[in-house]
Design a protein around this nucleic acid. Structure first.
Lengths: 355, 355
DNA sequence: GTGAAAGCGCTAACAC
DNA sequence: GTGTTAGCGCTTTCAC
């Protein structure tokens, strides 16, 4: 940390030219090459670097975009953040990480704080939404892109996925491999994803294809491993009349890992006794043992799409609200797949890693 | 997204008072309560919210701090980011996420870019360091706190941990539980952590206590699960004359998970045949099966300390370079601990979750 | 306690 | 092609 920085005025003086010429020369717009030469030299000698704040004030652009979620520690949001950063950084945009808090009210506050003009746009993935939040987003002084629910009809740019259908894919896969008594470990129902996934499970298990089979739901307090463990303990010890569960659909990968741990505690083998599916297709699920069959919701893709959308909007692309849908797709792995060589007998507590 | 925002001037006009009084009233400094009342009302009517950029230009403070690492997807850095955000946000500071890139040169560029004055301080955790970078940090126009190597002697604020000693703790633990042929899966040696951890392993395995026992190193290309898997395959198939490895120390948790998967492939049971230790004590290691014995380097604590340090410095706390050391400590879990009830025989491919 | 005015660093009219 | 100047929104002397 050292001496104060040189300003454009000082560069101008040093080069013996006007302030305007200095600015132009540095931007390569309408300046003679002699001028450019001269100014560049002066700037270099002074170690000049343009002040972002002065520039922002004048241009009314901060070259910053905020990304806000409730819990930046969640692997899904980390993937989004990474993708967003990768898209935005090459365009000269910085990414500011913010927290929505866990309530709609705190998210509304966050959106309203955009009034301070510290960013040119916001990408937000709220766990809970209501009319007040929708209104606040529409009133926001900078472009806002929502990752989650489709809000196109409300006139809000959004990047969505169909997690309802995603849960359907998981159930279909389990039915296909012959599972008939399926449990569902969901997160809080008052969240957007919780509600959507419940609809997906209810729809899939009341479809004709599923007729006569058994389905039950247990709700976890949160979308975490610990909450999943607790919920799965409750679910798996229910032991319904139809017979023990032979599969569990979890509303995300963290819950699924909790489910697998609970199964282990109860002496159940995954996938033999009980098959388990997750959702989000996170790194942690891919490397887990057994590796997790999971419905990908394209976190990186959604992040990239949202970043591109916000980039268009801050670049003054006008037009009706955009809606980008990323289709869910199932990645089948060990947690639902019988071992490839069933003939081979494994010694106790030995783990087979199919690949 | 809607109409343009109100400015302080407009509030002043509306309240029928001067600009200066308006500013003072809004900050509660030296204004009569009548004035405050009046100005507040006007501000409310106009939905005024102060412009962060104008404020920054005048105050020469952005209320932003940058956090830069090579890979924001790494769980360790996510933990640091979370902790940093938690400390800084209540003080009104925003966190800007940046990338150091993978080379020292790109990190130097990043540090030099601070010249643009878009943040009041930087917290950086570089994988590689050299004299040029140290010099750039010392020349930086804003306070910089380094998480990683101790750079106190170079006059740079830093938050460090002793991963060399940490590896020593892992080796000591393995020796204590009777392991004698220990492999080490390290990451790249030209990184600061890679070098430190290698020193730790070499020191621990050449200590008198270890005399006569066997130690070998295999190097992974990166600190990731995939690289750990590759390296562990090579290591475990070496089969040294002294006999097969009965333990593997991994330089971080991700590598350790790769090691456990490799062990599984080779039909080795963890911890029975081979005990495995990780480092960083990440969530992913804690929930893995078997849960991972790991050397905690206090990621959250280091993040918090760095944030506090940068907060002091931007608050004009002067004084000699600070050096905060966070001691490593071992968390023993299933990957090195024999099952609690060795008498109980488990059926094949059944997993026991001790707790 | 209040008002007038300067100026933070920069870009973009606007004149020449 | 270059120079002069205004002004982005704010805080803070400085006079009263």
């Amino acid at each position: 940390m050292s001496s104060s920085r040189a300003t454009l005025i000082q560069v101008a003086e040093r080069a013996g030219v006007s302030l305007a010429s200095t600015s132009r020369a540095l931007h390569g717009t309408g300046a003679s090459s002699a001028m450019v030469e001269r100014v560049r030299a002066a700037a270099a000698e002074l170690g000049y670097s343009p002040d972002a704040i002065g520039r922002s004030l004048r241009m009314k652009r901060t070259f910053q975009v905020a990304f806000a979620v409730a819990d930046i520690g969640n692997p899904v949001y980390v993937e989004m953040l990474t993708a967003i950063h990768e898209v935005l950084a090459p365009h000269g945009y910085r990414v500011v990480v913010m927290s929505t808090g866990h309530t709609v009210a705190s998210t509304v506050d966050l959106v309203r704080s955009l009034g301070s003009g510290f960013v040119d746009g916001l990408i937000v993935s709220p766990l809970r939404t209501d009319d007040v939040l929708v209104e606040a987003i529409k009133e926001a002084p900078v472009p806002v892109v929502v990752i989650g629910r489709s809000l196109e009809r409300q006139g809000i740019d959004s990047v969505s996925t169909d997690s309802t259908a995603g849960i359907g894919q998981a159930v279909a896969h389990l039915v296909e491999i012959g599972r008939r008594r399926i449990g569902f470990v969901n997160g809080p129902l008052d969240t957007t994803p919780g509600a959507a996934r419940q609809r997906g499970f209810d729809a899939a298990t009341s479809a004709p294809l599923f007729a006569g089979d058994h389905a039950e739901t247990e709700r976890a307090d949160d979308f975490t491993v610990a909450a999943g463990l607790d919920a799965a303990r409750r679910l798996l010890s229910r032991d319904p009349a139809a017979g023990p569960f032979d599969a569990v659909v979890a509303a995300n990968d963290l819950l699924a890992i909790g489910v697998i741990r609970a199964a282990g505690e109860l002496g159940l083998s995954v996938p033999r006794d009980v098959a388990v599916t997750g959702m989000d297709d996170t790194e942690i699920g891919r490397v887990f043992q057994p590796s997790l069959t999971s419905v990908s919701l394209g976190s990186s893709e959604r992040g990239r799409a949202a970043a591109q959308l916000v980039l268009d909007r801050v670049g003054d692309v006008v037009g009706p609200a955009q809606q980008i849908a990323i289709g869910p797709h199932l990645a089948v792995r060990e947690s639902t797949t019988p071992l490839v060589e069933p003939a081979e007998t494994l010694p106790a507590s030995k783990e087979k890693s199919a690949r």
